[in-house]
Computed example of a mutant assay.
Amino acid sequence: MTFAERFPGATILPFEDKVPQIHETAFVAPGARIIGDVTIGPQASIWYNCVLRGDIHRIEVGARSNVQDGSVFHVEGPRPDTDGCPTIIGEDCVIGHMALVHGATLADKAFVGMGAIAMDGCHVGEGAMLGAGALLSPGKAIPPREIWIGRPAKYLRTMDAAQVEKIRFQAERYCALAERHLATLRGETEA
Results as ranks from 00 to 15, higher is better:
C122I: 12
G41I: 07
T158K: 14
E172L: 11
D81F: 04
A183I: 09
R33A: 09
A128H: 08
I117V: 02
I35F: 07
H74D: 09
A132Y: 04
Q43R: 14
F27K: 06
I149N: 05
G115E: 09
V94E: 01
F169Q: 15
I46F: 02
T11R: 15
G77E: 02
R168P: 00
D120M: 07
D37T: 01
E188P: 01
M1Y: 10
E76A: 14
I40L: 10
Q163M: 11
A161N: 10
V61T: 07
K140Y: 02
P80A: 14
C85I: 01
G115Y: 04
G121D: 04
A116R: 05
A178C: 05
G31R: 08
A116Q: 09
E5L: 13
R168C: 14
P143R: 05
F7H: 05
E146A: 11
H123A: 08
Y174T: 12
L100K: 05
H181M: 13
F7R: 06
V67C: 14
G115P: 09
M1W: 14
R64P: 03
V51F: 01
G70I: 07
L177A: 10
I22S: 11
S65P: 06
F7V: 13
D17S: 13
A107Y: 02
T189N: 15
L106P: 11
I117W: 03
P152C: 04
E16C: 12
G84T: 01
T2Q: 13
L185G: 09
A99K: 09
A128F: 08
G103P: 01
P86F: 12
T105V: 10
T105D: 09
E165C: 05
A116H: 08
I89Q: 10
A104F: 04
L177R: 08
D37N: 11
H57Y: 07
L135R: 03
Q43S: 14
P8C: 12
D120H: 11
D92M: 10
D81S: 13
Q21E: 15
N49T: 10
R173E: 09
C122A: 05
D83H: 11
M119W: 00
P86S: 13
G77A: 01
K166G: 06
A110T: 01
P8E: 09
P138G: 07
H102A: 12
S137T: 14
E188Q: 15
H123N: 08
L100F: 11
F15C: 13
P8N: 13
I56V: 15
G131K: 08
F73D: 03
E60V: 15
G36T: 07
F27G: 02
E190G: 10
A178S: 08
I12Y: 10
G70L: 00
L135K: 03
L130V: 00
A110V: 06
W148M: 05
D81V: 02
E76C: 11
A32H: 03
A10M: 03
R186F: 03
E24R: 12
C50V: 14
L130G: 00
H102K: 15
I46N: 06
P138I: 06
H102N: 07
G125F: 09
